[in-house]
Amino acid sequence: MSSSRATLMQVAERAGVSLASTSRALHGTGASSKMVDRVRAAAAELGYSPDAIGRSLRMKRTFQVAFAVADIGNPVYVEMLTAIHEVLAPHGYRVVVMSTGHTVGSTVDLVRSLGSGFVDGLIVSPLRTDDALVEAIRQAPVPVVVIGRSLEQQGIDSVSTDSAAGLGQAVAHLVEIGRRRIGFVNG
């Protein structure tokens, strides 16, 4: 095989089936198991891999979700990223990590840029929100979920924790096990 990328047509020719049958076999729709095996063997022989750009154009989806955070070095975000990846990967999606910096304006700019079609959705964990960010999220052409801020009253999908309740449980536990001098350090 040459150094150029194998095409779907080449796979079809190698398998001895039509282009449509090759496509169906590779997508697992409407093809016999014998044909699927033959097409997959031809694809493996040729080193064929689907063209992500072509697929995105055809399906009008990128199979990418952006995860935008202020500081990509923060270990909390790494844990979130791992959990997000575990949910999205089985559905064929990749997670693109983006840094927004510490200003609301940069997050607003990111949300407004979503119309360019580089992702199918955004998960964002802003340090602060304001009316401009809320409005940008409402106008976003793709689904947006905010982590860390409760924005449901403004019609924004969000995931947040009740920090006060969590802190109360932690203090109650420490008192229950006999601690009397309790300090709290917050980032």
Rank of each mutant, 00 (worst) to 15 (best):
S2I: 10
S3N: 13
T7E: 11
M9D: 14
V11Y: 06
A12Y: 03
A12G: 07
A12H: 04
A12C: 11
R14Y: 02
A15C: 05
A15T: 10
A15W: 08
G16S: 09
G16R: 04
G16K: 02
G16V: 12
V17W: 05
S18W: 09
S23L: 14
H27C: 11
G28H: 11
S32G: 02
R38N: 13
V39R: 06
V39L: 06
V39E: 00
R40L: 07
A43M: 03
A44Q: 15
E45S: 13
L46A: 07
L46R: 07
S49H: 13
S49Y: 14
A52S: 02
G54D: 05
R58V: 15
R58Y: 07
M59R: 10
K60A: 07
K60I: 00
R61Y: 05
R61A: 03
T62C: 11
V65H: 01
A66G: 05
F67N: 06
A68S: 04
D71P: 05
D71L: 00
I72N: 01
I72W: 08
G73L: 12
N74L: 02
N74D: 15
M80I: 13
L81C: 13
L81T: 15
L81F: 09
L81E: 08
A83T: 03
A83Q: 13
H85N: 15
H85T: 12
V87S: 08
L88S: 04
P90H: 06
G92F: 10
V95I: 11
V97R: 00
M98T: 08
T100N: 06
T100R: 00
H102E: 12
H102C: 13
H102L: 15
V104Y: 08
G105D: 15
S106A: 13
V108M: 03
V108I: 07
R112N: 10
R112I: 01
R112M: 05
S113K: 10
G115C: 00
D120V: 06
I123H: 07
I123D: 00
V124H: 02
L127Q: 11
D130P: 01
L133W: 01
L133R: 00
V134G: 12
V134L: 15
E135K: 09
A136C: 05
R138L: 08
P141Y: 06
P141N: 11
P143M: 14
V144A: 06
V144W: 09
V144S: 00
V146P: 02
V146L: 00
V146W: 09
G148H: 10
G148F: 04
R149G: 10
S150G: 08
S150I: 04
G155I: 11
G155Y: 08
S158P: 06
S158I: 03
S158E: 01
V159W: 07
V159H: 02
A164W: 02
G166N: 11
G166W: 05
Q169M: 14
A170V: 09
A172P: 08
A172L: 12
H173Y: 09
V175Y: 06
G178I: 02
R179G: 12
I182E: 05
I182P: 07
